[in-house]
Amino acid sequence: MGEEDKEEDTLALLADLVHIEIGRREKRPLCNRCRRPTNVCWCSSLGGKKINTECKVIVFQHPHEEKRCLRTAPILQAALQHGNYLEVKGKRFNSSRFPEMKEILLDPNSILMYPGDDAANVESLPHVGEANQPPYNLIIIDGTWQQAKSMYHNSPQLQNLRQVCLSGKYVSEYVIRTQPTNDALSTVESAAIALALLEQNWSIYTTLVGPLQILCQHQIMHGAVKSSKQRISNTIREI
C-alpha cells in the first residue's frame, strides 16, 4: 500500500469517528437525494430537474472510494439523467467480469480519461454532432492516483480504449482537499469539463460544479481551511 493510500485510509477512519453517535444523540436527518445531512445538503443548486446530456458517464470506482468523505461522484449520480450515469465498483474491469459493460468497453466511441503519452486532449476530439460524431461514452476511473494506476494496469480492456486527458489549464474548485498535482481535478470536475467540451455546452459545467462549490462552502464555514497542509485536521471537522 502506497503512502497516499495509507493517508487516505487514515483520513477515512478519522472521518468515521466524527460520525459516531454519543449517548442518545439523535441522528441528523439525511437528504434522500445526496444522502448528506439536510442542513449541509448541496441539492438546492441542482434544482428539481436532472441534466439530460447526450454522452454517458461511466465511473469505474475502487471499492475503497465509497468510504471516502466528501466524494464527488454522488454529484454526477444526482445530477445526470437516469441511464446517462453508470457506476461500477471493482479493482479489475473486463466484459466477462462485468457483462453489462461489454457493449461500452467495445464501443469505438468509448473514451477513457486517463493521462498518458498517447492520451489525446479532449479539446481536440470532434464535438458531438460534428461530422456525424455520435455521443461518447466517457469513462472515468475513481480512486486515489495509486488505485487508479493499479486498476488501469490490471484491466487490459481499459488499456485498449482511446485515452483522453484535459489540457491542464483548468483550476480545481475542490479547495478543501489536497490534489496530487496542481492541475489535478476531482471526478465531478473532470466529467463536467469533458462533457462541456464534447457537447459545446458550458452550462453542463456550471450545473455540475455548483454542488461542489456549496459542499466546500459548508466545510469552510465549519472550520475547514483552504490548505493542502491541513488534510488530517480538516477531515476531523468534516460534517
Results as ranks from 00 to 15, higher is better:
T178W: 11
Y114I: 11
N160Q: 14
L158N: 02
E123P: 04
Y205P: 01
W145V: 00
A192I: 00
L166C: 07
T206Y: 15
A194T: 12
L198P: 08
K91I: 08
P115A: 06
D142S: 05
R177A: 12
V88L: 10
I139A: 00
V164N: 01
V164F: 00
V88Q: 08
F93W: 11
K169E: 13
L212K: 12
V188M: 04
L215M: 15
N201Y: 03
N94W: 09
L138W: 03
M113T: 01
A119F: 06
V164D: 02
S96Y: 10
Q217H: 14
P108V: 09
G116T: 03
L112N: 01
L212G: 09
E123H: 08
E199M: 03
Q159W: 05
R97T: 01
L138Y: 04
G90Q: 11
Q163S: 10
S203V: 00
N160I: 02
Q219H: 15
R162P: 10
W145E: 01
T187F: 15
S95M: 02
S95V: 00
H153W: 10
M113F: 12
L112E: 02
V88C: 06
P180N: 07
K149H: 13
L166V: 00
Q179C: 07
T207I: 00
D142G: 07
I111K: 04
L198E: 10
K169N: 13
I111A: 01
P211M: 11
S110G: 05
P108H: 08
F93Q: 12
N132K: 11
N132G: 03
K169Q: 13
Y170G: 05
E173R: 14
N121I: 08
Y114M: 14
G90E: 13
D117G: 14
A148M: 08
N137R: 08
S190C: 15
A196E: 06
L185F: 08
Y174Q: 08
R97F: 02
P99A: 01
M101E: 10
K149T: 05
V188I: 02
I176D: 10
G210L: 11
A192G: 01
Q179V: 01
D117L: 13
S190N: 08
Y114V: 04
T206S: 15
L197E: 13
D117H: 07
I111D: 03
Q200D: 15
I139D: 04
I220F: 02
S167E: 12
D117V: 12
I104C: 05
P156A: 06
V171E: 15
T178Y: 09
Q217I: 00
V175W: 10
Q217Y: 08
